[in-house]
Design a binder for these strands. Structure first.
Length: 480
RNA sequence: CGGGGUGUGGCGAAGUUUGGUAUCGCGCUUGGUUCGGGACCAAGAGGCCAUGGGUUCAAGUCCCGUCACUCCGACCA
């Protein structure tokens, strides 16, 4: 059997139309369904289970770094949103407003949170008085609303699920350390659990979060060569504290402004998983977040002993902590193979009368379609090892794609040539630091600045655009 | 928000040019036979053709509006 044969005919191939391929997967793998409100989608059980796994792991990482969960309200009064000037300017164009309660017009209209900095600030102003009240390391898992003009499942919806961490510290140093620490947590999460390689970097001035002193991000490269911001971490300095009147008394008995951070990751990660690991047969899920890690397909299940053996194997694997499902539906074995490939289940176990007789089964890993025969009495160990191999395999494949699509350039012509000849990807190029050059690069080559990587290299001493002295290495790319 | 495309049972389409009883494939239901890469037979269920107006004896089809989805730009997690 040819390994590259496409078996699920109703998914558009990536090569043919990447955008269509993406939406096909979202629908066919039963991740989402549209609703009658533009940009608002139903996250179906299989998609939501992925999110629950992301939540569980990330939440554990937050707790391990000393954070507590809280829950702020969904509504922000207009006057509160307006307290920090840059912040309101950044978000005003995309907020949804509540103007009525029942049939009565509200005294002051309320915005549905696009992000909750203002609510946290109002709260901090109430509860922080002394240096002993600091730091506060808070996080919340909620949904937010941004009235986007064009929408796509997971990548850009009008309401989306996320976590937003909000911390407040006595000193700038502490807040900066927090900002960097959480960026590191995000990067580890993406690489270890989602098997998505990311670039850690700092955003340019023009690309900063509204109201931040500095914004950091992790950037991932999708299969089609477009960049996706997978998480952000912001350092606010004391700007919000000043705008909201948050002050504490220091040990020296002086009134001081505290320093803040915020950081977030969203259901967009599911989009990142799809576009990093998926292929023409459907989704490929990283084992850590796969709702089903191994699916058992009983072959000739009407024959005596087959279903019993499948149930027994399921119990064994579950005891070993593996998420497993037996599909004993009346569909043919071939149908089931395709179905779970489309749904991205990392490991498939085929077990039929012949195997049982031999004390074996057939194991197939989704990402490379490799088949092998495994002994039933050591199945749990074998599957656990396979799951690790899948994680490593898809990580390396994604890393290879990124490396093949990362082009170091020293002139604008080189950028254009690289993009035309080799296709979309990351451009590594030096930059003088002026917004003018940043805009010009985008205008002429079509790629925008993604981030200034924390690990800087000097591939030239001149700005790729104006030729003056270069200040930073920048990753550029087309973005989702 | 600018430019294009598409809306017909759950999904994918034909029918629209030239107005005249709503079609096909897949899926779904029931029963039976199958089962190692999307099985087969039989019998069924399901649609005021996105939506609001208009023209007409008659509108899925013609005219005007609206909405949604989608792609390409600008903006964004």
């Amino acid at each position: 059997m040819a390994n590259d044969k496409k078996m699920v005919e109703d998914i558009t191939s990536m090569e043919e139309d990447f955008a269509k391929w993406y939406t096909d997967i979202c629908k066919k793998a039963e991740l989402v369904e549209y609703t009658s409100v533009k940009g608002c989608m139903v996250i179906r059980p299989y998609g939501y289970a992925i999110w629950e796994n992301i939540q569980r792991i990330l939440d554990g990482m937050f707790k391990a770094t000393g954070h507590e969960n809280v829950c702020m309200p969904m509504f922000i009064p207009e006057s509160l949103l307006q307290k920090e000037k840059d912040h309101v300017e950044g978000f005003a164009p995309e907020v949804a407003w509540v103007t009525h309660g029942g049939s009565e017009k509200l005294e002051e209209k309320l915005c549905v949170r696009p992000t909750s900095e203002t609510l946290f600030c109002e709260h901090y102003a109430n509860i922080i008085h002394s240096h002993r009240d600091l730091p506060k390391l808070y996080n919340q898992w909620v949904s937010v609303v941004r009235w986007e003009k064009t929408t796509r499942p997971f990548l850009r919806s009008r309401e989306f699920l996320w976590q937003e961490g909000h911390t407040i510290h006595a000193t700038a140093e502490e807040a900066i350390i927090e900002t960097e620490k959480m960026l590191g947590v995000y990067a580890d999460f993406c690489e270890q659990y989602l098997a998505i390689p990311v670039i850690k970097g700092k955003k340019t001035e023009s690309d900063k979060f509204a109201g931040a002193v500095s914004t950091y991000a992790i950037e991932a490269l999708m299969h089609d060569g477009k960049a996706l911001q997978a998480g952000t971490s912001h350092y606010f300095g004391d700007g919000f504290a000043k705008a909201f009147g948050i002050q504490y008394q220091s040990k020296e008995n002086k009134l001081e402004y505290p320093h803040q951070t915020s950081w977030g990751m969203t259901t967009r990660l599911i989009g990142a998983i799809i576009m990093t690991h998926g292929d023409d047969n459907g989704l490929v899920l990283p084992p850590a977040v796969a709702p089903i890690q191994a699916v058992i397909i009983p072959v000739a299940q009407h024959k005596p002993g087959v279903l019993e053996k499948a149930a027994e194997l399921k119990a064994t694997l579950e005891n070993a902590g593996i998420r497993v499902k037996v599909d004993d539906s009346n569909n043919s074995a071939g149908w089931k193979y395709s179905e779970y490939e489309m749904k991205g289940v990392p490991v498939r176990i085929e077990v039929g009368p012949r195997d049982i007789e031999n004390g074996e089964c057939v194991l197939v890993t989704r990402h490379n379609r490799e088949k092998c025969v495994a002994k039933l009495d050591t199945l749990a160990e074998t599957v656990a090892a396979k799951l690790q191999q899948v994680r490593d395999g898809i990580y390396n494949k994604a890393l290879e794609n990124r490396e093949n699509r990362t082009y170091a350039c020293t002139t604008l012509d080189e950028i254009t040539a690289a993009l035309t000849e080799k296709g979309d990807g990351f451009i590594k190029a030096m930059w003088c630091g002026s917004e003018e050059c940043e805009d010009k690069v985008k205008e002429i080559t079509g790629v925008g600045s993604r981030c200034m990587p924390l690990i800087q290299e000097e591939i030239s001493d001149k700005c790729v655009c104006c030729g003056k002295k270069a200040e930073h290495l920048v990753y550029w790319g087309k973005a989702y």
